[in-house]
Amino acid sequence: MTDNVEQVPPAQPGRRAKRSEQTREKIFRAALKLFAERGFNATTIEAITAAADVGKGTFFNYFENKESVLLNYRELQMERVAAFVAANRESDRPLAPLLLELALTLTIEQGQSPGLIQSLLTAVFASDTVQKRMAEAIEGNVQQLALMVGHRQERGELRNDLSPFDIAQGFQRMIFGTMITWSLAPVDPLEESMKRSIELFVNGVLPK
């Protein structure tokens, strides 16, 4: 005779993975917030764990050090570019608002705090490893954007005397330049500065 005992299902791996990702995201966001407020060098791991309300050991379950938090941000940016290109590679939307949407997507954290931009730059130039990995990400993003640019060139919407890579690289540099200069004198919202820069950029890549 079999006892009628209710079987308790084991914890679902999907739930554990979700909780783990939520913890990682909480630590990541707490670190970015502190980088913006205090600067990268002045932010300690202890401060990050206190802000995220986790133990120090939990931090090291997800990140090797403060620099690895930046590399997580690198991965996030690459995912954003890849997703944007996949969704808009053959889009018929006007170029200026399309590029503005991308620029704002890539600067959503920085647009909330000029201090974060300066903090990220400090961290990048302080570490050869981070600098190299960030440079690799930038090149990868440019190659992704070049796919979208090339499609626009095929339709005659953009000038063809420049390669898709050159135009995509110019766009990336425009974003960085606007972001850095805005962080030094953030009189208007970053979105307004980006809008003006993109209008000038688009006028420069239209067919002559």
Results as ranks from 00 to 15, higher is better:
44 T>E: 04
44 T>R: 13
46 E>T: 13
46 E>P: 02
46 E>R: 13
47 A>V: 04
48 I>C: 02
50 A>H: 12
50 A>R: 14
51 A>Q: 12
51 A>Y: 03
52 A>K: 01
52 A>W: 00
54 V>I: 13
55 G>Y: 04
55 G>R: 12
55 G>H: 13
58 T>D: 08
58 T>R: 13
58 T>E: 10
60 F>D: 05
61 N>P: 06
61 N>K: 12
62 Y>V: 08
62 Y>C: 06
63 F>Y: 07
63 F>G: 02
63 F>T: 12
64 E>R: 15
64 E>I: 09
65 N>K: 14
65 N>E: 00
66 K>E: 01
67 E>V: 08
67 E>T: 14
67 E>N: 09
68 S>H: 04
68 S>N: 10
68 S>Y: 00
68 S>A: 10
71 L>C: 10
71 L>Q: 09
72 N>F: 00
72 N>Y: 06
73 Y>K: 10
73 Y>H: 05
74 R>F: 04
75 E>W: 11
75 E>V: 14
76 L>A: 09
76 L>T: 15
77 Q>D: 11
78 M>H: 12
79 E>P: 00
80 R>Y: 15
81 V>S: 12
81 V>E: 09
81 V>A: 05
84 F>T: 01
84 F>R: 01
84 F>C: 00
85 V>S: 02
85 V>C: 07
86 A>F: 05
86 A>C: 06
87 A>C: 08
88 N>G: 01
88 N>S: 05
88 N>M: 04
90 E>S: 13
90 E>M: 08
90 E>C: 09
91 S>P: 03
91 S>G: 10
